[in-house]
Design a protein around this nucleic acid. Sequence first.
RNA 1: UCCCCGGUAGCUCAACAGGCAGAGCAGCCGGCUGUUAACCGGCGGGUUGGAGGUUCGAGUCCUCCCCGGGGAGCCA
Length: 446
Amino acid sequence: MAAPIMRVERIADYVGQEVTVQGWLYNKTDKGRLYFLLVRDGTGIVQCVVSMRDVPPETFEAARRVTQESSLIVTGTVRQDARAPGVPGGYEIAAREIHIVQLAQDYPIGPKEHGVEFLLDHRHLWLRSSRQWAIQRIRATVIRAIRDWLDGQGFLNVDTPLLTGTAAEGTTTLFPVDYFGERLYLAQTGQLYNEANIFAFGRVYCFGPAFRAERSKTRRHLLEFWMVEPEMAFCTFEEMLEIAEQLVSYVVARVLEERRNELRVLERNTAPLEKVTPPFPRISYDEAVRLLNEWAEEATDPEQKAALRIEWGDDFGAPHETALSLHFEKPVFVTHYPAVVKAFYMQPDPQRPEVVRCADLLAPEGYGEIIGGSERIADYDLLLQRIREHNLPVEEYQWYLDLRRYGSVPHSGFGLGIERTVAWICHLDHIREAIAFPRMLYRYRP
RNA sequence: UCCCCGGUAGCUCAACAGGCAGAGCAGCCGGCUGUUAACCGGCGGGUUGGAGGUUCGAGUCCUCCCCGGGGAGCCA
């Protein structure tokens, strides 16, 4: 009977059995009459031991010939051995038969260090390395967890268009797309459509890519990134914060539960992640400004001093967010920003109309904003007034204004950036590793 | 768009104040039965991003261009 095909992540279930592994050679150690082959199959990495004494000559010859990243099929017996490296590790295969499917020649990425430019040029191959493998596996769990939690809380997934007919979204730069001479744009948010959808479905979320044609060149920006945007009818600002902190906490817990091996590959210290449980601290914009200026006073470095100082009414820059984010052990909500720095649709605070009922969630460890959200203006007249104040084309917003004419309700929503969340959970230096094929300024291929 | 940094062997980098362009890794050959990015010995490997200039002499200094990286603004 042929040996069953084993997925390496399930190796613990096969101890003592003969199995077949289909994969690629990750690394090889040549000890003369003994070879250690590290074989990865997409689910993990297993060490295959090939001893001259124990295998037929053709198997030993295959182990000698096989090169890094060659595809191969190995059959042998699984045994437990604490010395065996790999993921999960602690198990190895005593090989009996090796079939080389294709012999790779001169694989460009070696086990030693490489520069960013070289790795990005070889992104199609870089994805095979264990760090990148671990990150993408965690990303998949983050996405799965988001969907599971929202679906379980009565949210309906209703996706929104990626092509829009007008530049009405206003805020940042849109990618124009030519459609037989007509100008369309790639969506940078599904929020306005989400607001229509809640009146049909109550609680909804859209999940998809967003496009921002910014000439940003930082470790936090992509031209194309993925975002989940929940939107809730009959939901106040405070209720929205609770939903957001529940969702983020659930996602982190799922990764801790299901991706231990991957976090270990990344050498991620999990202690800060274990602390991510509700409730998250909430501070007002006013308080944040006060704190930042206090830290600016205390700072000895004049550059740091200048970077932290802030006037009430200014929006936070990256140094401000980083400082705030480092100050708290959990993600922190910064709420009630001045209306002037925020989007036109945000609901003013009834007690203080100069600020809006909005929140940014800053991830800890200096990672900065992962969520932006707000209660939306429910009143027709106020919304119309804001559209005019922002010099937006009123005619393009007729359908959006309609939502305030036919059964308007208090409602709120937020957007969670997938890559920023993955970058934080994986403790990455740069957001480019959080997506398989990043799109950045001057980086469109492969 | 602006500010800063970089481009030397397949890869990662060195080369004092302008004076023979070098090392590790990878590759190939040989050795080794428990390696964890193995180790030991040997071998091959160069239009120093491009163009121009200064100089007896330029990887090194100057000008322009090209290509990257980091940051700012903006934001997820």
